[in-house]
Simulated scan of single mutants.
Amino acid sequence: MSAEDIIGLYERHAAAFDAQRGRGLMERAWLARFTALIPPGGAVLDLGCGMGEPIAAHLIGLGFRVTGVDSAPSLLALCRTRFPGQEWVLADMRGLDLGRRYDGILAWDSFFHLDHADQRAIFAVFARHAAPGAALMFTSGPSEGVALGCFEGETLHHASLSPAEYRALLAGHGFAVLDHRAEDPECGGHTIWLARRDGAQATSAG
């Protein structure tokens, strides 16, 4: 299975994904760092929002205005039912242009399903939706390559660029890296990038 098949996989198995996705919010500490960079009541763009739980739900509970983007209609239908006061957009994040800028952009466990070329191109999507000083957080793989997982008996595609290339892409699109952790043991082994738009001072070599 390639990256092109991911949309169909999540649509076919939306109910299973909803049932199996943990709600324990192991991401809490990183989300706290992300939201600390966003003004109260600010607007957050959640790319690959899934069914909106637990991450979008957490952000909504903190008073942020969430625009969730996903390419699986069944998952977005769950978002609209559970969180009708927010905006849920059926779209592919690749080439996305909503004509608006956000105080925070999140691509948690979504961006890494794209192939290498699409990952490089998505940084322009991040940049055109980022307000001055906007926070950006996404997950990737720990090193360059492709990894194949499995969900509901189907192959699940993941890809990653090298850390050096991610840093170069962020810098080239006006983002400064605030922190980077590879396979963080306190966050389920996620590899996480936290950055800020428009020349924010980096605070960690990562």
Rank of each mutant, 00 (worst) to 15 (best):
M1H: 13
S2W: 00
S2R: 13
A3H: 13
E4Q: 14
I6M: 13
I7Y: 11
G8E: 14
Y10R: 02
A14I: 05
A14R: 02
A16F: 00
A16C: 00
F17Q: 10
F17T: 03
D18W: 10
R21Y: 02
L25E: 12
L25Q: 09
M26F: 14
E27N: 09
E27I: 06
A29F: 12
W30E: 08
L31N: 10
R33K: 15
T35F: 01
L37C: 04
P39Y: 10
P40N: 04
P40S: 12
L45T: 09
D46G: 11
L47F: 01
L47Q: 07
G48R: 09
C49E: 07
G50Y: 06
G52E: 08
E53Y: 03
I55W: 01
A56I: 06
H58F: 14
L59K: 09
I60G: 00
G61K: 06
G61Y: 06
V66I: 15
G68A: 11
L75W: 12
L76E: 03
A77T: 05
C79S: 06
T81A: 14
T81Q: 15
F83N: 03
F83S: 06
P84K: 04
G85R: 10
Q86R: 12
E87V: 14
E87P: 00
A91F: 05
D92A: 03
L96V: 12
D97Q: 08
R100V: 03
R101E: 15
L106D: 04
L106C: 12
L106Y: 01
L106Q: 01
W108V: 08
W108C: 00
S110H: 11
F111N: 02
L114S: 05
D118I: 00
R120Q: 13
R120F: 05
A124E: 15
F126A: 05
F126R: 01
R128V: 07
R128D: 02
A130D: 09
A131L: 08
A135H: 01
S140E: 08
G141C: 09
P142F: 04
P142G: 08
S143M: 11
S143P: 00
G145P: 06
G149V: 04
C150I: 04
F151L: 11
F151M: 05
E152W: 06
L156Y: 09
A159S: 15
S162T: 12
S162D: 12
S162N: 07
E165F: 03
R167P: 00
A168G: 12
L170P: 00
A171P: 08
H173G: 06
F175E: 01
F175N: 01
A176I: 00
D179A: 15
D179Y: 02
D179G: 14
H180V: 11
R181E: 13
D184F: 12
P185M: 05
E186T: 14
G189E: 10
I192Y: 09
L194M: 06
L194K: 01
R197G: 01
G199V: 04
G199N: 14
A200I: 04
A200P: 04
Q201P: 13
